[in-house]
Amino acid sequence: MMDILGGAGEAPANDLIKDVTEETFMAEVVDTSMQVPVIVDFWAPWCGPCKTLGPQLEAAVTKAKGAVKMAKINVDENQRLAQALAQQGLPLQSIPTVVAFFQGRPVDMFQGAVPQSEIEAFVKRIAEAGGGTADGGLGEAVAMAEQFLEDGQAEDAVQVFTAIIGEDDKNAAAYGGLARAHIALEDLDQAEAVLNGAPAEIADAPELEAARAQIELGRQAANAGPVAELRAKVDANPDDHEARFDLAQALHASEDAEAAVTELLELFRRDREWNDGAAKAQLFTIFDALKPNDPVVLNGRRKLSSLIFA
């Protein structure tokens, strides 16, 4: 794996650090973060602390030599983008705000000017989350457990994930995998117990968030109605938002995530504020539960962003 202080050759600075706009955000931040973490610096020309933080952050990112990348977003020139991201949960009311994206979603952040040592620790932590450091072979063990899970050998996956946690009690991939293995064994309560027992330092890690989303969807599936009846209700009255939302849940329960996302996007298009934004919240739950590079996630996020910006 890449050493965060050495790496596989030093990347050009202009490739590591870029000015990003509303038009380039999806490509330079979301898509790029599927391969390498992207640290986004939200700043403005009138912001005094931004003038100090920006160069310090650039120096730390450059020092990481390709283990992370950096995007600089001038919130004054990209107000619609900032507003859309705020609607999706990012606290952008004050700047500077620094948000790290990995595999398409935010994974860590801080606000305000902080000491250089904290900036470097932040960049190092994000680089490690993206695989920018050696792990003593535990990554291979995680991959083996994931293969067990994919092959339907959930009990074997449980054993391997448990062993990994015994070696590294802060291994987010192992905790998330162990929870998903219990989900595969249809033991949602045990899966939830695994996540509740994870150390606070990794409680918000993407691997754990994905497992939480799968648990939530699993509980929804137990109460999902018949697809045919719900489809008939929606066809009879396209403005029956409750029926469309229930249809989306039923479609996901029947393992048709793409169709579920389609119905939720249509509901969001018709009334984004219905039931306190339930359509958008459910979309994020589905996106979190799937692999970040799943076509359903990539297409769904793009379409949702288009609707938000419209």
Results as ranks from 00 to 15, higher is better:
I308C: 04
D168R: 02
D204Y: 07
N78I: 01
A278S: 09
I215W: 12
T62R: 15
E167A: 14
D3V: 11
K233S: 13
G218R: 10
F287D: 04
A59Y: 06
R270D: 00
A113Q: 13
S305E: 12
K291A: 14
E23P: 01
V99E: 04
M1Y: 10
P292W: 03
G137L: 05
A203Y: 07
K65V: 13
P115G: 07
Q220L: 15
A211I: 07
E77F: 05
G166F: 05
A222I: 14
L307P: 01
A174R: 01
A198H: 03
G89Y: 06
E266S: 13
L178K: 01
G166D: 08
P292G: 06
K72D: 04
G9R: 07
I95M: 09
V68H: 10
G9D: 08
V261H: 00
D41F: 13
S305W: 07
N14E: 15
A71Y: 02
P199S: 11
A278I: 11
D240H: 03
A193K: 03
T97W: 00
A100I: 07
E201D: 14
T21F: 03
A198Q: 02
A163P: 03
P12L: 15
A236T: 03
L85S: 12
E150N: 02
G131M: 11
A243D: 04
L307I: 02
V234E: 05
Q79V: 04
V99C: 06
E273Q: 11
Q249A: 11
H252L: 09
M109R: 14
D151T: 03
A174S: 06
E201L: 15
A163N: 10
L90A: 04
T24N: 04
E22H: 08
A279M: 08
G54A: 13
N196Q: 09
E23F: 05
L283F: 12
V98I: 09
A281W: 05
V123L: 04
E150V: 03
P49R: 10
R219M: 08
G166S: 08
D76N: 02
A86K: 09
I202G: 07
Q159K: 10
A279Q: 06
K303R: 15
Q147D: 06
I119A: 12
K63L: 06
E186T: 06
R180A: 04
Q282N: 11
V296H: 09
I39C: 11
G132Y: 03
E201M: 12
A127S: 14
E58Q: 15
P12Y: 14
T52M: 15
G54Y: 12
F148A: 04
A100P: 09
K18P: 00
I286W: 08
L230K: 01
E167S: 14
I119Q: 12
F309W: 07
